[in-house]
Amino acid sequence: MLLPRFSYHQPASVAEALEVLGQHGDQAAIIAGGTDLLVNMKHGKLAPRHLVGLEGIDGLEEIGADNGSLVVGPRLTASALAASGELSGAAQALALGAASLGSPQVRNRATVGGNVCTARPAADMCVPLLVLGAKALLAGPDGPRELPLDEFFLGPGQTAKKPGELLTGLSLPRPAEGSGAGYEKLGLRKALEIALVNVAAAIWLEPDGKTIKQAKVALGAVAPVPMLSPGAEAALTGQTAGEEAFAQAAEAAATDAKPISDHRGSAQYRREVVQVLTRRALGQAWQAALGQ
């Protein structure tokens, strides 16, 4: 299989990258790990005339701190995130999702920025990022802007990022004491698998260690985009953590889910599984929040 022809650009700074992107408009595509883009190009689904590689730009491959937030560099690979010591507490959700993506070879190349910009409904890193309230940090010709991720995803493969813009980071709240995360994925195989349903959960406990201060549940593969479950959040906030609350939240998540039937699974089954996985992910998150 051959890749179509293109020119390759290696800007040395974000400003240079924006300049190249501006020059070529929708003829340009940004490449990081290439695990998705190159596959689509080999299949003839995409044929950008210009690829803009980000490897020459410093600072896109680290986790930085900014006031109360963590800024995750978009070129961090799934492997790096899965092994990162900085993603503790609720932020562990991202590490868990990253660890379950594809295969070791894919994780060594696939980046969080690519996973977010590719915007697949089952994306292993997007679903966790939603429960963390992550914001996309975008640089563009009109200056930088921030966009909450739930507004960033518009549809399968579609985002609010404009052609001339570059994702420069993902901002998350700093890991808090008494928080924890869970991630559950159901697929046929145990590796090299896209989720039939995946669920991320994060819980922030009150100092009493029992009351849920805040909790979020995000669902994958049950809507055109990775989605938050507002029903689950409402069912959990202020409640005592435990099976009862989780079961109610799971029911709410199943109600919120908007699955369709396709060759991989029926809507009915996906909805059933959302409920099971939500309950399990919350249980996992709770245990993590308790430090167990």
Binding site: I31, L38, P104, N108, R109
Partner: peptide, 16 residues
């Protein structure tokens, strides 16, 4: 192995 880590060489550009 690229810098010691396994990668699928079909999905890495030579320039990368």
């Amino acid at each position: 192995l690229m810098d010691g880590e396994p990668v699928n060489s079909c999905l890495v550009l030579a320039v990368q």
